[in-house]
Computed example of a mutant assay.
Amino acid sequence: MSYNHHNQSQGYVPSYNSQNTGAAYMARRGWGNESDRNTTISFSSKSSSKRIYITLFIMVVLLLIAAIVIIILFATGVFSSTDPLQNPTSSPIFNPTLRPPINNIPTLGPPIFSQNQSYSGAFTILYQASNDFDTKNTNNYNRVFNLIQNALDNVFVTSTLRPYAAKATLTDLQNSGNDLQVLFRVNMLGGGNVDQFTVADVIRNNLNQLRTLLNGNAPIDPNSVFVFRQFT
């Protein structure tokens, strides 16, 4: 910056003849324009940063929610960390490698319940013991024997076992303390799903009929009915 010096005492005023003055600099920068004075400061950079922080926060929240959902699904067994195809817990139902040749399949015999069946059983008539039953083939023994035999025949002929031609055969009468024990046998053709419990239920379900056929004075103990199957 150059100055032209003049003696102030001689009435001279220094003049600035340079483009490097502050006024010139301000003029070059446009600071002297009225429009530049009214220019406002922009906050666009701060608003952009705020939006970025909000976006990141939302993403973090969504990731946390997704992680919680995945943990719950694993805990409830919806997802499994093991591959069932690589680590099977059980063998497949059908295994073609174990399938036998069709010509070697054995033929099954008839089911056991399609064969003739035989059962032995017993029940007790309370308070009917007598010395007459200690000696077999007496008149009184034979009379009571035939009476009970006919009653059993009537019960089984009219029972649910009738389709199998079930026939009851009285085998013996024995004193048991004060009671009379009745021993019998039941034979039938086939039998389907019949078992010893079915035969015993025929006796229990027809106790009233038995009492009536035995002149109404035969108190039969339902808990004494016992039947078992005989295999020959």
Rank of each mutant, 00 (worst) to 15 (best):
M1W: 02
S2C: 06
Y3L: 15
Y3S: 09
N4T: 08
N4G: 04
Q8F: 04
S9K: 11
Q10T: 05
Q10H: 03
Q10F: 03
Y12V: 09
P14E: 08
P14W: 06
S15G: 11
Y16V: 12
N17R: 13
N17Y: 13
A24R: 15
M26F: 08
N33V: 05
N33E: 09
S35D: 14
N38L: 13
T39Y: 07
T40R: 14
I41E: 08
I41C: 01
S42Y: 01
F43V: 10
F43H: 10
S44R: 14
S44H: 14
S45Y: 00
S45K: 03
S45W: 04
K46V: 09
K50V: 15
R51S: 13
F57G: 04
I58N: 07
V60E: 05
L63K: 13
L64C: 09
I65W: 14
I65V: 15
I65P: 08
I65L: 15
A67L: 08
A67W: 06
A67P: 04
I71L: 13
I72D: 05
L73N: 13
A75M: 14
T76N: 02
F79H: 08
S80L: 09
P84L: 14
S90K: 10
S91K: 11
S91R: 13
P96R: 12
P96N: 14
P96V: 13
I102T: 13
I102R: 06
N104D: 15
P106N: 07
T107E: 14
L108Q: 09
G109W: 03
G109Q: 11
I112A: 08
I112M: 09
S114G: 00
Q115N: 06
N116W: 06
Q117G: 12
Q117A: 00
Y119H: 04
G121Y: 00
I125N: 10
A129I: 11
A129W: 08
N131A: 12
N131G: 13
D132P: 01
D134L: 12
N137K: 01
T138V: 00
N140E: 13
N140I: 13
N140A: 12
F145V: 05
F145K: 07
L152C: 04
V155M: 09
F156C: 05
T158K: 10
L161K: 03
Y164L: 10
K167L: 13
A168W: 01
T169R: 04
T169Q: 10
L170S: 02
T171H: 04
T171D: 01
D172G: 06
N175G: 04
S176K: 12
N178Q: 11
V182G: 00
V182R: 00
V182C: 02
N187P: 04
N187Q: 09
G190E: 02
G190S: 13
V194W: 03
Q196F: 03
Q196P: 05
F197A: 12
F197I: 11
T198D: 06
V199I: 05
V199Q: 03
A200Y: 07
A200I: 00
A200V: 01
I203N: 00
Q209S: 15
L210Y: 02
L213V: 07
N215H: 14
P219S: 13
P219H: 10
I220S: 07
P222Q: 00
S224Q: 15
R229S: 15
Q230N: 15
Q230L: 15
F231D: 00
